[in-house]
Design a protein around this nucleic acid. Structure first.
Lengths: 107, 107
DNA sequence: CAACATACCTTGACAGATGAGGTATCTATA
DNA sequence: TATAGATACCTCATCTGTCAAGGTATGTTG
C-alpha cells in the first residue's frame, strides 16, 4: 500500500456506505472492490473493516444478514438502511468541505 | 467548527509545514492564520498544535527559537528545515493521491 | 495432502486528537 | 485600581480509529 492509512482515517465509514449504496455485499468482497477501484493502492485491513461494520451497525446505518451459500464459506451480507443513506450524504458533504479546506491550507 | 477533526487527522503536520514554508511563525499566530484562511470553519486545538510541533521537531522537520520580545508574552518561533521542505513535498503528494483515491471510492 | 484462497472474527497495542487543566504577561474598562 | 479578556506558552489523561497478530472453518488446485 502506498498511502498511509492516517490520511484515509475517518473516511472508512463513508467508503463502506458508498459501496453499499450500489448493492448489498459481504465483507471480503467489499474489500476486494475497494482494492480494485484504487488499483491496489489502498486496502482496508480486515480488523479495520470489521470494526467499521460493528460501528455502522450499532449506529443503525447498516443491517446485516447471512447469505444462503450451500457451498463454500458462509458470508455475512451488509445492507444500507435509510438512515445510512442520509448519513452517507452528510458524510459526503463533509468530505467535500474538508477537501476544500485542506486544499486551501496547502496552497 | 463545522468539520469533524477526524477528517483532517493526519494532515496536521502537512498544514503546519505549509505555513512555515511561507515564513517562520509562532504557535498562536499559526493557529490564527489557519482559522482566517478557512473562514473559521477549522481550527487546530492547542493541544493538537503543540503535540504536532514536538513531533515535527523530533523528526527534524522544524527547528525552534525564542523571539526577542521585550514586551508581552514570550513567543516560541518555528522554522522549517531543509528536511522539512522535502517532507512537505512528499506529504503534499500523498495528499493529492489520497484525495484522488477517496474521490474515486465515493463516486 | 499440502498449500492457498475464501470468509469470518477477536484482542491488545499504538498514535493522533483533544478536553481540561495550568502559568505568565499585557490591555481595556468600569 | 481591580478585573476581565486577550495573548502566548505548556502538560497530562483519555478517547477513538487503525492494525498486527492471532484464531476458526471451508473449498480448490497441483
Amino acid at each position: 500500500m502506498s498511502i498511509t492509512s492516517d490520511l484515509i482515517r475517518g473516511h472508512t465509514d463513508t467508503i463502506i456506505l458508498a459501496h453499499l449504496l450500489e448493492q448489498d455485499n459481504y465483507g471480503y468482497q467489499i474489500n476486494k472492490v475497494i482494492m480494485e477501484k484504487t488499483d491496489n493502492r489502498y486496502e482496508l485491513k480486515e480488523a479495520t473493516l470489521y470494526t467499521a461494520f460493528r460501528r455502522l451497525e450499532q449506529s443503525g446505518f447498516i443491517r446485516t444478514y447471512w447469505g444462503d451459500e450451500t457451498t463454500g464459506a458462509r458470508r455475512r451480507y451488509y445492507a444500507i438502511t435509510e438512515e445510512g443513506k442520509a448519513t452517507y450524504q452528510k458524510y459526503k458533504g463533509e468530505w467535500e468541505e474538508a477537501k476544500g479546506l485542506i486544499d486551501k491550507l496547502l496552497k
